[in-house]
Design a protein around this nucleic acid. Structure first.
Lengths: 301, 301
DNA sequence: TTATCTAATTTGTCCTAGACAAACAGAACA
DNA sequence: TGTTCTGTTTGTCTAGGACAAATTAGATAA
């Protein structure tokens, strides 16, 4: 493992920082300081890539790059998150149980986690399971990832296993066909699917007809899918990690290309601070999602 | 829908063509021809974005951009795929049944598809189901997508439902613990997970201990995960859609940062034409994967 | 002291235009 | 028919400049 090197494209892939940003940081802040290969192209040593990944994580947690880059490495690893301060409010109840579940993931005990979750599902029923177990657990994992107490691969394992549980639960429900036809998906660059699965579970419980298209649909394809499926509602999910600044523009762009008769709903952690947008319904939580559904039914009978 | 416009970043997201490529094509070929907004920045009309998406699809199917861009739009829509010529060989048997399954997707009948697949699973058993149903079906969908007879959203629906089936089948297996500990994942930019799920199903059937980390793990994180989980094998999947040229470099880079005691296996449609690589085992198919597993056991008892 | 508005700063994204290497196609050759 | 060589195609990298949106800091008013 003697100092493997990454070119700028590989660093972009691995860190999520665009080439433009990597070059700009080098120009402005003097970091990173890649070597040059025989063609004069940047060649990033692995430790610098690690540091960039750490910086990116702290940025996603609300820190600013200028400060971070000036901070020495040791200090970086101990920095706390800035954004999610008011998070731990209604988590007094059941906190210990959630911690136990997370501990299973941290011990790399995927099987144990799955079994414990299935028990909870059986005990709580799907709706409560989604709202009281999956949702807070997901948020907790996000926070833990931000403050560094969760490794990336632990988060991946959690995500993969949780997706399985949800999908399994959903497919055990008979496909509803009373309610609106709801097309569930996300925009390109938004790959978090757990939010979509949670809301699908709730909608399916209510008997709505869900069309799960997975994540990362190009906007124009969402519009075509909505036409082809005669969807009554297009529901998009934005995670907290999604670049907030892009959301309003994306939604309005999609609203423009979407059939007029299809409603556009947006939910997830990313849209909570969003203002009102014309022709778009912002879902601020699970209750809001369910009441949107019942409202739709009231207006379409 | 009066000519909505996309900036270059949105086009990159929606088409998968990098900003560099978009600018270069404009310089070289005179297409696309975006307008400019008040800041002098490119503004792509929706029809051009559609055309770019079509071109990208045909490129993934083996065509060359120079030709495609010179081709008029009407002709583009009728172009056949170039790459997958020898595909339809051993598909004589059961072709009609597979066509029926695909027809369900095309009719947007997700529920019917799921039921039909569950029946097949029960009839064939998991191993045959993976090899004789899921695998050819997935290949067929890929081909159909390439030659334009499948819409993107139909492919998404198929993918989402098939993932559910596989995950459900896998989680019904008791977690094995005899065989090697196999860490299953993919590199960043490789988001196709069905191949991973198929091989996980086979390995789990053989009693191996699978650690599914989902897709898109940064290389350095794969290495950390392998250490933390004490993985005996890291198995990566590359779909046919993954840029072939990047694969050898990626694998060697990963091999460098991976613990020496962990084996590195690479499978999927993307690695079939790959030459031999030092310290990396290329899996050319399901049989090859299973024999790799038994070989490993032979060498580690 | 708190609130609000303005100015300065930070930061990401976009721009042009040039260079080069890897991949590919086709021709000449064995 | 197969192989090597050469020219073309194509993607990715480089440099540094510009600017707008977001954020912070400072100043003024309540």
């Amino acid at each position: 493992m003697n100092t493997p090197c990454f070119n700028i494209g590989a660093v972009e892939r691995d860190t999520g920082l665009s080439k433009d940003v990597l070059r700009m940081w080098e120009r402005r802040y003097g970091f990173p300081t890649p070597d040059r290969d025989s063609n004069g192209e940047r060649s990033y040593p692995a430790p610098q890539v690690e540091r960039l990944r750490l910086i990116k994580r702290l940025m996603d947690a609300g820190h600013r790059p200028g400060k971070l880059i000036a901070t020495p490495m040791e200090e970086l690893t101990t920095l706390a998150p800035r954004r999610s301060v008011q998070a731990t409010t209604n988590e007094t109840a059941g906190t210990d149980e959630l911690n136990e579940l997370l501990a299973l993931i941290k011990q790399n005990d995927g099987t144990g986690y799955q079994q414990a979750m299935l028990q909870r599902l059986a005990r709580q029923g799907l709706q409560r399971f989604v709202q009281d177990t999956i949702a807070p657990l997901t948020r907790r994992v996000g926070e833990a990832w931000e403050d560094g107490s969760f490794e990336v691969f632990e988060e991946h394992l959690f995500t993969e296993l949780t997706k399985r549980l949800l999908r399994q639960a959903i497919s055990s429900l008979a496909g509803g066909n009373q309610g609106p036809r709801v097309l569930l998906t996300s925009v390109p660059d938004e790959q978090h699917v757990i939010g979509l699965l949670m809301v699908e579970a709730l909608f399916a419980l209510e008997g709505a007809e869900c069309i799960p298209l997975g994540t990362q649909m190009p906007l124009l394809e969402i519009a075509r899918a909505a036409s082809a499926h005669k969807a009554d509602v297009v529901a998009l999910s934005f995670s907290v990690a999604f670049p907030q600044r892009q959301i309003p523009g994306l939604l309005q762009q999609l609203r423009q290309v979407l059939p007029a008769e299809a409603e556009l709903w947006a939910g997830g952690g990313g849209v909570q601070r969003l203002g009102k947008l014309d022709g778009i319904l912002v879902l601020t939580g699970f209750d809001s999602a369910i009441s949107a559904l019942t409202n739709w039914r009231k207006n379409h009978q």
